[in-house]
């Protein structure tokens, strides 16, 4: 099926009689892309499912105020990213005394998850990413997994490209160090 252009969707959304159809096309076009972005953030399906619902409620609520200053999908990515961060902050159930304790629990939970298919190396990568500071994790996910351009990430996060490159560089080095160290224990 041919993908409907954003301009067409926006045109429909601005017309009350076509709004419902326009919103349906918007959901069809972007739900998977946004879902995987969120999933890379929160790792667990149930969490991603909650966040994608909240994301589209926000999109629904604010779409009429969308001014086309940014691209439609970067605007939606921003909402999805913010929703993910809010969700993570809201659901911090308990604070672990150290990072290792947290990582062990996280690893066990992920291994037991029906909807996780990764091998040992991929699980190790997820652990490395989960240790990153929030901004570096965000940039790393967008660049490495979502393969977004720096220009798009800059628009989503409202950060300069130079700063994003530095964040990605730091994140990559930390991930690489984690992978190298865990390899040496094997």
């Amino acid at each position: 099926m041919q993908e409907v252009k954003d301009a067409k969707i926006l045109e429909m959304l601005s017309n009350d009689s076509q709004f419902d159809k326009g919103f349906e096309l918007l959901v069809q076009k972007y739900q998977e892309r946004l879902y995987w972005h969120i999933r890379n953030y929160v790792h667990f399906h149930q969490d991603a499912d909650d966040i994608i619902q909240n994301t589209f409620i926000k999109v629904f609520k604010n779409i009429k105020g969308f001014e086309s200053k940014s691209k439609l999908y970067t605007w939606m990515y921003r909402i999805a990213t913010n929703e993910s961060i809010n969700y993570i902050n809201k659901n911090k159930r308990h604070v672990h005394s150290n990072v290792d304790e947290h990582l062990i629990e996280f690893e066990e939970k992920l291994k037991a998850d029906t909807y996780f298919d990764g091998d040992a190396a991929q699980l190790n990568l997820i652990k490395a990413i989960s240790k990153l500071p929030l901004k570096q994790k965000t940039v790393f996910n967008m660049r490495y997994f979502d393969e977004l351009s720096y220009a798009d990430i800059s628009e989503i996060l409202d950060t300069s490209i130079g700063s994003l490159k530095a964040s990605y560089h730091h994140a990559m080095k930390k991930v690489e160090t984690h992978l190298k160290e865990s390899q040496s224990y094997v």
């Binding site: 399906h45 909807y115 996780f116 298919d117 990764g118 190396a121 991929q122 997820i126 690489e176 190298k180």
Partner: peptide, 15 residues
């Protein structure tokens, strides 16, 4: 990043 580049970059999650 030689260690990272060894990891198969596929979707490890399902729904």
């Amino acid at each position: 990043a030689p260690f990272l580049s060894c990891i198969n970059k596929v979707n490890i999650y399902n729904v």
